[in-house]
Design a protein around this nucleic acid. Structure first.
Lengths: 117, 117
DNA sequence: CAGTCATATATCGCGAAGCTATATATAGAC
DNA sequence: GTCTATATATAGCTTCGCGATATATGACTG
């Protein structure tokens, strides 16, 4: 699966991270991998994109973090806050509405009208 | 219909303009109106966003323009170039793929699993 | 044991791009 | 004559994604 033109994802990156986090606590590197795997390589968020984004989401109190230093691998685990959960479901609905709308507009481009036999 | 959080549209604005232009020649103000109407107010691209975007698309030779000064209303009509048409169908497919992927990820959030009776 | 790669997080600087505000000009309504 | 809608354009601000770079450890390999 070819990597996606990343420009397309602008605007829904937070939504994606929040979505993956709704499946439970994750740390950054794991999040990155899960996204890549779940999308068969389509979605590959760079580290230099993801970490600042996680920091933003935390500053906005949509997620919270805790370090685990018990192993040699320092890991910062993130989880949704109640606010984050609300934001997620709201953004998800908004995105879905938008996607349906755009899909509708695109339909003539995606599936050209078959010739009337 | 409430206006959409415009952040969500980042990354697919060009796609939308190209899509609307695939329906025939349009000038900027008309484009803006058609988008707003077709989406029942959901998509409302600001003038300060749209005009620079149109200029970019033209600089990239995806669209071309011609002035109509025959009336009091100066209008700049835009139409797709062959290159723009190719780009549109390519971006449309890419977006669709991405949208399906995200929709998939979102499905547990959008439609919570019903309790097993 | 030295070298290399994967794991794991972080930040800087750059450039792209959307928004608000503002400017300009005309048409039509009242 | 004033106000609103039509129609296009640009400057300045800010946000944000990316590549590059830095740091440190674990795991494998010869």
């Amino acid at each position: 699966m070819a990597k996606l033109n990343s420009e397309l994802m602008r605007g829904s990156l937070d939504l994606m991270l929040l979505t993956v986090l709704s499946g439970g606590k994750k740390y950054g590197y794991l999040l990155q991998q899960e996204l890549r795997d779940a999308s068969r390589g389509l979605i590959d968020i760079q580290a230099g994109t993801m970490y600042p984004l996680l920091h933003r989401l935390e500053a906005d109190k949509l997620i919270r973090s805790s370090w685990d230093d018990s192993t040699g691998r320092r890991r910062k685990w993130y989880e949704l806050t109640p606010t984050g959960r609300k934001r997620l479901s709201q953004q998800a609905r908004e995105w879905h509405e938008y996607a349906e709308c755009l899909k509708n507009m695109l339909s003539p481009v995606l599936e050209p009208v078959p010739r009337t036999a």
